[in-house]
Computed example of a mutant assay.
Amino acid sequence: MAKLAAQRQKHIFIEKPLTHTIEEAENLLKIVAENGVKVQVGHVERFNPAFLSLKGMHLAPMFVEAHRLATFNPRGTDVSVILDLMIHDIDLILHLVPSEVKSIHASGVSVVSATPDIANARIEFENGCVANLTASRMSLKQMRKPDAYISLDFLDKNAQIIRLFDKNDVSTEGGNMMELETARGTKLIDIQMPEPMNVNAIQMELETLAQSILDDTPTRVTIHDGYKALKVAHQIIAEIGDSTIS
C-alpha cells in the first residue's frame, strides 16, 4: 500500500515497523526517493511527554537500560516481541546515541506464540556506549522505563534527571544541590524533574507530519529512521535464531 501511494506521489504515514522485511524497506526507500514524497513512521514514543522533556539537552549516553514490559494481549503475537515492542526502544536509542552499531548479542523465549514473547538484547556502539534492552509481553505489570543518567517513565510520562558534580566545579547559588560523600571525595548531586508537556502523542505525530508537508521540511521520524530501527530489530531476531527456547 505504501508503495502504491508513493508511486502516486502521496505523502505517507506508516505505522511501525516500517515493513516486514529489510528487502521491502530498501525497495520502499528507493521508490520514496524517486517520487519525492514525505514519509513519517509511527514510532509514537518520540512524542511521549517524558521523551519530549529532554528537548534542548545535549546528551551523550554511555549506558542505556531499557525495559518495556506489557501484559499479554493476543494482538501483535503474529510478530516477535522485538518488532512489536522492543522496536520502540531501538528507535529511541538510535536517535539518542550518536554512533554506529558495533555488535549485537540477544536471546529470547517463546511462551505462547511461535515467535519470541520475551527478549533481551545488548547493543554495543562504536563510541563505547552499551544499551541493554528487555521486552516482554508476558508480564504481570506494564512498565516502560529507559534510563541512562536520565530516568524516563514512558507509562506515567515523567522524567528525572540526576547529575553528579565535583564540589569545586559548580556554584551552588540558586541551585537545589545536595552534598554526597563518595569514595572520591565530596560530590554535589543535582536532581531535576522537568515538567512534562501535556500533549496527545498520537495527535502530535500526525500534526508534525502535516506541518512538514506544509513547510516542506523533513518529517520528525523519517523513513530512514524507520529503516535503521527495522534493520537493528532484524539483527536481534537473527541473533536469537535457533537459541530461542520454546
Rank of each mutant, 00 (worst) to 15 (best):
Ser103Arg: 15
Ala229Leu: 04
Thr244Arg: 13
Leu52Phe: 04
Met138Ala: 01
Glu45Gly: 00
Ile191Thr: 14
Gly174Ala: 11
Arg144Cys: 09
Lys102Ile: 05
Asn198Tyr: 08
Asn73Asp: 14
Ser53Trp: 00
Leu209Lys: 05
Ala50Thr: 04
Thr77His: 09
Leu18Lys: 05
Arg122Ser: 09
Val37Ser: 07
Leu214Val: 12
Asn158Trp: 15
Pro74Phe: 01
Pro61Arg: 09
Pro61Met: 13
Met193Pro: 00
Cys129Asp: 08
Asp147Phe: 15
Gly128Ser: 09
Asn120Thr: 12
Ser136Val: 01
Gly108Arg: 02
Ile104Ala: 09
Lys167Pro: 02
Gln203Lys: 12
Leu85Asp: 12
Asp190Tyr: 12
Ala135Cys: 10
Ala233Trp: 04
Ala114Lys: 11
Leu28Arg: 08
Glu173Leu: 12
Val109Pro: 00
Ala25Pro: 00
Arg137Met: 00
Asn48Met: 10
Glu126Leu: 04
Pro49Cys: 02
His88Ile: 10
Leu152Ala: 10
Asp216Val: 11
Phe47Leu: 05
His105Arg: 15
Leu83Trp: 00
Asp156Leu: 13
Gly36Cys: 05
Asn127Lys: 10
Lys145Asn: 11
Asp156Cys: 08
Asp190Lys: 05
Pro146Ser: 13
Ala131Tyr: 10
Thr77Pro: 00
His67Lys: 14
Met178Phe: 04
Lys16Ile: 12
Gly108Asn: 05
Ile22Cys: 01
Ala2Pro: 04
Thr71Val: 10
Ser151Cys: 06
Glu26Ala: 13
Leu155Trp: 02
Leu85Arg: 13
Gly36Gln: 13
Glu45Val: 07
Lys10His: 14
Ala119Gln: 02
Arg8Leu: 12
Ile87His: 09
Asp156Arg: 15
Tyr227Lys: 06
Ile123Cys: 04
Lys187Asp: 03
Ser151Val: 13
Asp215Trp: 07
Pro196Trp: 07
Asp91Ala: 06
His58Asp: 10
Tyr227Glu: 03
Pro146Gln: 13
Ala159Gly: 13
Asp153Gly: 08
Val81Ser: 03
Pro196Lys: 06
